[in-house]
Design a protein around this nucleic acid. Structure first.
Length: 808
RNA sequence: GCGGAUAUGGUGGAAUGGCAGACACGCUGGUCUUAGGAACCAGUGCGCAAGCGUGCAGGUUCAAGUCCUGUUAUCCGCACCA
């Protein structure tokens, strides 16, 4: 019995107490000792919105906090940083609406977030805190841009953007919902603007291949691979009859070349203009092209089901393998932005071509046997055999591909080709609250980079953050800022007024964390060399093809120019499921099902809140919130709290609980690593139930439980540890417990006895029996004998520790 | 249409091919209380039972929630990528 006076569990008091101690002692600051084994745990730094933390943040943060706290107890030097992804639209919109400078809004929001995160007791490396809006930080965001520009990976191009006709504003894709403006419901059209682009496509291959070297959860890899969309095939030239010109097509099915019965080029294809004099129905073609151009993105996808198109009368092409003359069409089902903007159509073996050919009565020639082309296109590439295909006849699809590609290359009419779906990254925003792009436009020299010595190019102060009527950044209203001189020729030049997207600052923040106040470079080489790559990065699936891909791109680029020491930024990536409202729907203000972490912490404390978020269900699955469930976790902590009244003076793990304790250590240690927090917590609950069933536990038993519980409920564990005086240190300075396999053994186990696979009874047997001994033991049991009396035993399957199945 | 995931009590969910429903929530009854939305104790998949039970239909196996084939529903992502 502890001689401490018993006090009821009061989370608000002890949480505050320990947060102050940790802060005062700098308990979680990493050491400068680079000989220690390191662990770099990372969570996506939050966007400090005005709404404050939602319940999703603590789910990811607590999960990684658990890993980091455990790592420290295991002797690792741990970096677990936090910062602010603070540029971006919502802050700017708030600033516009309330006429407050976004910088002030941002500062206020960060303070609020910080207080909330501290309230939850995360063991962040606060000394590494960064904000993307800090000039000291965006200095190097701009520096990376200069490097991209220098290497030709940043370029300016005419690109269509989403334009709200009512707000007269360019919108991000995320702001366009069902073809209308998210804010005003106005019509959104495509408007061509000159935009900064980043050549991420240059890294398509590396981004795909790099996935084989990292430990990302499979669905992230699959999604990135699909997004990058590598496909292998061939480009083939089809001569336009009576000219020297070719239509060059891309196909993944060069094996079906003999089945090409027409061609389709995109409405934007240059050859249409070039041969407009030959096209006898040019008026009709022109009208179709205008129609296609007028269609908004929304309409184009809406109308995707029904194929449309116009034949280019007067133009035909020659199939290079059989010299057949085939018609050429234009249709918007062929995209100008993919491949060569032209295809050979093989209706017998492509669903889209089939549909198109059926609609317009074009010939369908079967070249792969195995299907029924009177019903459907036959697209199976595994089983088909080539027919009607000259020298390819009799080959499998796979062999035919190889054979025809070789032939094309030998004849000089085509070649193997890899294509990607990935598009270059539109990097401009006509907005105020972002990093200025450090480039000027000179009348003589064109786009010229600022010299590095002029970085950071500060975002100038401004009174009005609204875009201009023509959709330019409000920075254009600052002539004294815009008008400058060309660093190259000294002549008059204008600064770029577009700013960078929110994804810029977040593409390299994990590098900056290793050396956040370095004025000279991204981070010092020694620090990067020690800390990078991030060992474990947890975040949301919604960033898989955005932030996660962008930052891998930047990192690979930085690696290629020798600015970082490793080719991949993240060794391991995991992902948490979303927390839904209590009604099972997505949490949102409009649904009125939002749970505020402040309210929960006020009611049950941070530890119970953290505990519940980890216990509520499988970590990677979406899960509805349950306030009752959260209260249940509070009850569990109260139950543990009350254990202090039955702790004996025995120092070691008790005989009575020895097995339960070691089972729990094993289960909890393993489950934390697998992020199976729910079952880890269940194991601790079972242990507590075992303590209660004996009405007694030793100090050693309690110590083991508290160490296991500490990563999830750190304040609680620290407090009880100290209250019971379990050691002279604080619990976070303790070693992680190890389990002893030999302590897991049982003397006797209950096994099930089955007859023909049906359970008939359960018997207790010595745990040490092997397969044969167990079978024998079971057969000699009186109750079992009764069951099989008069029957012939044909076979006995015995599984030690589990069951005996008697076949008779 | 393509890709991914999921499907188990009233609810959230457990279960290396080996006793389905661990651990919780909720609910029912009880104890103690001036009181209970506190605590503690007992019960709780369905069925009176024999039995039946992991979306549905088959299959493999001594044994299937788990493996295979097919199928349905829901969620997420992509959207004519040749």
């Amino acid at each position: 019995m502890s001689n401490q006076e018993y006090q009821a569990y009061n989370p608000s008091v002890i949480e505050k107490k320990w947060q102050e101690i940790w802060e005062k002692d700098q308990s979680f600051e990493p050491k400068d000792d680079f000989t220690m084994p390191k662990f770099y745990g990372l969570i996506e730094f939050p966007y400090p919105s005005g709404n404050g933390l939602h319940v999703g943040h603590p789910r990811s943060n607590t999960a990684m906090d658990i890993i980091c706290r455990k790592r420290r107890m295991e002797g690792y030097n741990v970096l677990f940083p936090i910062g602010w992804d603070a540029f971006g639209l919502p802050t700017e919109n708030y600033a516009i609406k309330n006429k407050i400078h976004p910088e002030i809004v941002t500062r206020r929001n960060i303070e609020h977030f910080k207080a909330q995160l501290k309230m939850l007791g995360f063991s962040f490396t606060w000394s590494s805190e960064v904000s993307t809006t800090d000039p000291e930080y965006y200095h190097f965001t701009q520096w990376i841009f200069l490097k991209l520009f220098e290497k030709g990976l940043a370029y300016k191009a005419e690109m269509p953007i989403n334009w709200c006709t009512s707000c007269k504003v360019g919108l991000a894709n995320e702001e366009v919902v069902n073809g209308v403006c998210e804010r005003c419901g106005g019509e959104v059209v495509r408007k061509v603007k000159s935009q900064w682009m980043l050549r991420i496509t240059e890294y398509a291959e590396k981004l795909i291949d790099g996935l084989d070297t990292v430990d990302f959860i499979e669905k992230v890899k699959v999604q990135q691979r699909n997004w990058i969309g590598r496909s292998t095939g061939a480009e083939v030239n089809f001569r336009i009859k009576d000219t020297d010109d070719f239509i060059r097509v891309y196909t993944t099915r060069p094996d079906t070349l003999f089945g090409a019965t027409y061609m389709v080029i995109s409405p934007e294809h240059k050859l249409i203009d070039k041969y407009k004099d030959r096209i006898t129905n040019y008026d009709a073609v022109q009208e179709y092209r205008q129609q296609a151009a007028r269609k908004s993105e929304f309409e184009r996808t809406e109308l995707a089901k029904e194929k449309t198109g116009v034949e280019l009368a007067g133009i035909t092409a020659i199939n290079p393998v059989n010299n057949e003359e085939i018609p050429v069409w234009t249709s918007d089902y062929v995209l100008s932005s993919y491949g060569t903007g032209a295809i050979m159509a093989v209706p017998a073996h492509d669903d889209r071509d089939y549909e198109f050919a059926k609609k317009f009565g074009i010939e369908i020639v079967e070249v792969v046997s195995g299907g029924d082309i009177s019903e459907n296109a036959f697209t199976d590439i595994e089983t088909g055999i080539m027919i009607n295909s000259g020298f390819l006849n009799g080959l499998s699809v796979k062999d035919a591909k190889a054979a025809v590609t070789k032939y094309l290359e030998e004849q000089g009419i085509g070649e193997a080709k890899v294509n990607f779906k990935l598009r270059d990254w539109v990097f401009s925003r006509q907005r105020y609250w972002g990093e200025p792009i450090p480039v000027v436009q000179c009348e003589k020299c064109g786009y010229v980079a600022l010299p590095e010595s002029e970085l950071p190019l500060l975002l100038p102060n401004i009174d009005n953050y609204v875009q201009t009527d023509s959709g330019e950044s409000p920075l254009v209203n600052l002539p004294e800022w815009v008008n400058t001189t060309c660093p190259h020729c000294g002549g008059p030049a204008k600064r770029e007024t577009d700013t960078m997207p929110q994804w810029a600052g977040s593409s390299w923040y994990f590098i900056r964390y290793t050396d956040p106040h370095n004025q000279k470079e991204l981070a010092s080489w020694d620090k990067m060399k020690y800390w990078l790559p991030v060992d474990w990065y947890n975040g949301g699936m919604e960033h898989t093809t955005l932030h996660l891909l962008y930052s891998r791109f930047w990192h690979k680029f930085l690696y290629d120019i020798g600015a970082v020491p490793c080719p991949e930024p993240y060794q391991k990536r995991t992902s948490h499921g979303m927390i839904l409202g209590e009604n099972g729907e997505k949490m949102s203000k409009s649904r009125g099902n939002v749970i505020n972490p402040d309210d929960i912490v006020k009611e049950i404390g941070a530890d119970a809140f953290r505990l519940y978020e980890m216990f509520m269900g499988a970590f990677d699955q979406p899960i509805p919130w349950s306030t009752d469930g959260a209260r249940g976790c509070y009850r569990f902590l109260e139950r543990v709290w009350k254990l202090q009244k039955m702790v004996t003076d025995e120092k070691d793990v008790s005989k009575a609980h020895q097995r339960s304790v070691h089972v729990a250590i094993k289960k909890v240690s393993e489950d934390y690593e697998k992020m199976k927090y729910n079952t880890a917590i269940a194991a601790m609950m079972s242990l507590v139930n075992a303590f209660y069933s004996e009405n007694s536990l030793s100090r050693g038993d309690m110590a083991a439980l508290l160490k296991l519980l500490y990563p999830v409920c750190p304040h609680f564990a620290e407090e009880l540890w100290q209250k019971l005086g379990l050691s002279g240190r604080m619990i976070h300075e303790e070693k992680w417990p190890e389990f002893d396999e030999s302590k897991l053994a049982l003397d006797e186990v209950e096994i099930a006895v089955q007859i023909l696979g049906k359970i008939k009874l359960r018997i207790n047997v010595p745990a040490s029996l092997d397969r044969d001994a167990l079978a024998e033991y079971a057969l000699s049991n009186d109750s079992v004998k009764e069951l099989i009396a008069g029957k012939q035993v044909r076979k006995v399957i015995a599984v030690p520790g589990s069951l005996v199945n008697i076949i008779c």
